[in-house]
Simulated assay, not measured.
Amino acid sequence: MTFADQAAGLRQWAGNHRGSSPPHDNSTDAVATCKTLVVVGLPGVSPFQSQRVLDLLKHWDAQGRRWVGSSAQWRVVPVEITSPHLPLLLTQQPRWALWVDNDPNSFRRAFGILTRLKDRQGPHRLLAVHAPEMPRKGLLDNLQQAAWSCLSIDLLVMTT
Rank of each mutant, 00 (worst) to 15 (best):
D141L: 11
L139F: 07
Q144V: 04
P94A: 15
T2A: 03
T159Q: 01
G112W: 11
R75E: 04
S21Q: 07
G138Y: 02
L156N: 09
A7E: 12
T36H: 12
Q145N: 12
E80Y: 15
L117P: 12
H17R: 01
Q144L: 05
L140W: 10
Q121K: 14
N142Y: 13
V79E: 05
T28M: 14
D25R: 13
P123R: 01
P23S: 02
N102E: 14
G41D: 08
E133D: 14
P23G: 03
L156H: 09
K118E: 13
L89R: 04
A8I: 10
L126R: 02
Q92L: 15
V53P: 09
L89S: 01
A97N: 09
S106K: 03
T159W: 01
D119E: 13
G44T: 00
D55P: 10
V129D: 11
S20T: 15
S21W: 04
D119G: 11
V77S: 09
L89C: 02
L86A: 10
N142H: 13
T159N: 03
W74K: 01
G41S: 06
M134H: 05
L143G: 01
W74Y: 02
L155S: 09
P135E: 07
A97L: 09
W67N: 00
A62V: 08
L151Y: 07
N142I: 07
G112I: 09
W99I: 12
Q6I: 09
V77D: 12
C34P: 03
L54F: 03
D141C: 04
T2W: 00
V68T: 00
T115C: 06
F3A: 14
L127E: 07
A32W: 10
H85D: 15
L88T: 13
L10Y: 02
S152T: 01
V77Q: 08
P94V: 15
L37F: 06
S83N: 04
G138S: 08
T115Y: 08
Q6R: 13
S71K: 15
L56M: 07
V38N: 02
P23N: 03
F111L: 13
W74C: 06
V53D: 01
R65N: 06
A7S: 08
H124K: 14
V31L: 12
T2G: 14
L114I: 08
S21R: 02
R11I: 05
V53G: 01
R66Y: 13
H24V: 15
L126I: 02
L98Q: 07
V76E: 03
G44D: 00
V100R: 02
V45R: 04
R65S: 06
G64N: 00
F107V: 03
Q49W: 02
W99A: 10
V40S: 05
A110W: 08
F3Q: 11
A30W: 08
N26E: 14
N26K: 12
W148P: 05
W96R: 02
H24K: 11
G44E: 00
P47T: 01
R18M: 06
P94R: 15
L54A: 11
C34V: 14
F3P: 11
G138I: 02
C150H: 12
H85F: 12
W96C: 05
L140K: 09
L98R: 05
D29M: 13
C150I: 09
V39F: 06
L88P: 10
W99T: 11
V76Y: 01
L98H: 00
D154H: 10
D154F: 07
G19E: 04
L151W: 07
W13T: 07
R136H: 11
R120G: 04
K35H: 08
V68S: 06
S21K: 03
L10I: 01
S71L: 06
